[in-house]
Design a protein around this nucleic acid. Structure first.
Lengths: 114, 114
DNA sequence: CCATATCCATAGTCAATCTATGTATAACGA
DNA sequence: TCGTTATACATAGATTGACTATGGATATGG
């Protein structure tokens, strides 16, 4: 049987995946695999984006009009789906970033009161 | 029909409810309603703990052995269920607090890179 | 007497994330 | 040449967490 899962061992902070993706794409258009790599690298592997979370999230964001997608060829000659932040996506990124900061500040005010 | 829910308008940062409860009970034993008030007050009403989230969470935490419960009478003469942090709950609080800080730092390293 | 605040709790729903699985190709080492 | 690893996309299914909605009960203040 599989070992029981440590309830603390989460891959990402729930509710922040969209923010992480939008921010990553604000650097430059990227394909899914590259987005996951970028997030892992910048966070020193503290954050691991699972494929089963990533691709559905990309669909969601695309449906909301926050990013566009097109098939391209990578520098290494592979076919990959490149995602690009839309104008609305940029606004959404700003909103989510600000909301995240406020929520973190709120949690801190409870768990680390002055 | 009900207005569509703004995806940003969350009541709490998902995944932090247990932490908020454990921290609140580390101050002193408290009943459910008091816990919700405490979290709301300390966060200047930025965090709102819904009853439908709170009471199931208290059951969960009790099941894990992180807190104990007993019926008592409040100072105003009401009957209420008081929750008290156990020794294991105190350890769990420390773990969750540290995990939360690490996750927030990781997210920040992506969304606000140096 | 009626509204509001205090208190508990559950049922049902929804959304987000995870696990597991499938496909396919390229590169590399044994 | 063959197996493994890395690159790349995607979905199905399960699980979990948090929400809405609802129910009850008692106290207080207008």
């Amino acid at each position: 049987m599989p070992a029981p899962r440590d309830p603390l061992r989460v891959d990402i902070l729930p509710g922040t995946l969209d923010l992480l993706i939008l921010k990553t794409l604000s650097v430059q258009p990227m394909h899914g695999y590259g987005i996951a790599q970028h997030i892992g690298r910048l966070s020193a592997d503290a954050l691991k984006v699972e494929e089963g979370s990533l691709y559905p999230a990309l669909q969601r964001l695309k449906l909301k009009g926050w990013l566009t997608a097109e098939w391209r060829i990578t520098p290494t000659g592979r076919r990959a789906r490149y995602y690009e932040l839309s104008r609305g996506g940029r606004r959404q990124l700003a909103r989510e970033l600000s909301a995240f900061d406020q929520l973190v500040a709120a949690v801190r005010s409870v768990v680390r009161p002055a």
